[in-house]
């Protein structure tokens, strides 16, 4: 009777361990870290800024081929944001990372709408799997302030017609 009870306990324990082990194997093993600088940024609509993303394999084994994905959102839901309009590409492949290897990516972003946003970076394997690593959120404050002299065109768009207009007035006066 005791032996049967012990056997039952052992089988139950094994089943329990197997059940617990399955989700553990599917979660992240935590050997990739992501650092993004700057952690906060204030820019104007249309202004360029660059995110420096450093992906480090802090584990003991080589990773599978990895992809880095940038996402931008407004957590308050006040404004809508389409990250595809902010950057020409949102996903980049960085390949495998050997233990201790570091991969640095510069990501140019150009905000097209004003507001308070969060950007974050996700690293995930190219192959199907559930391992995923996420960076801290980056606070982006985008001001809608507009320049009165966009692209420096104001002097030309004013001066050219002014000069020709003055020439025209002078010509008309001379004819009188």
């Amino acid at each position: 009777m005791i032996r049967r009870s012990v056997r039952f306990v052992l089988v139950a324990a094994a089943v329990l361990l197997l059940a617990l082990a399955q989700p553990l194997a599917a979660t992240t093993d935590g050997h990739v870290t992501i650092d993004v600088t700057p952690s906060t940024s204030a820019v104007e609509v249309g202004g360029d800024f660059t995110l420096e993303i450093v992906v480090t394999n802090t584990g003991d084994t080589e990773t599978s081929a990895l992809a880095v994905h940038l996402d931008i959102t407004d957590p308050t839901g006040v404004g809508s944001v389409d990250p595809e309009d902010w950057s020409s590409t949102l996903t980049r492949q960085i390949g495998t990372l050997a233990p201790g290897a570091v991969r640095t990516i510069s990501w140019d972003v150009k905000p097209i709408s004003g507001g308070d946003f969060r950007a974050y970076v996700v690293v995930l394997p190219e192959a199907p799997g559930t391992d995923i690593w996420t960076s801290d959120g980056i606070a982006l404050v985008v001001n809608e302030q507009r320049s009165i002299n966009p692209e420096g065109v104001l002097p030309v768009v004013v001066a050219a017609p002014a000069v020709i207009g003055l020439g025209l007035i002078s010509r008309l006066r001379r004819r009188r």
């Binding site: 249309g46 097209i112 966009p150 692209e151 768009v157 020709i164």
Partner: peptide
């Protein structure tokens, strides 16, 4: 003069229009 006036309007609009210029 008409040409420069129109070109000025087009240039300023193209340079300052967010939808055109930001991308």
């Amino acid at each position: 003069f008409a040409y420069t006036l129109l070109l000025s309007v087009m240039a300023y609009a193209a340079a300052s229009d967010a939808d055109l210029n930001l991308l």
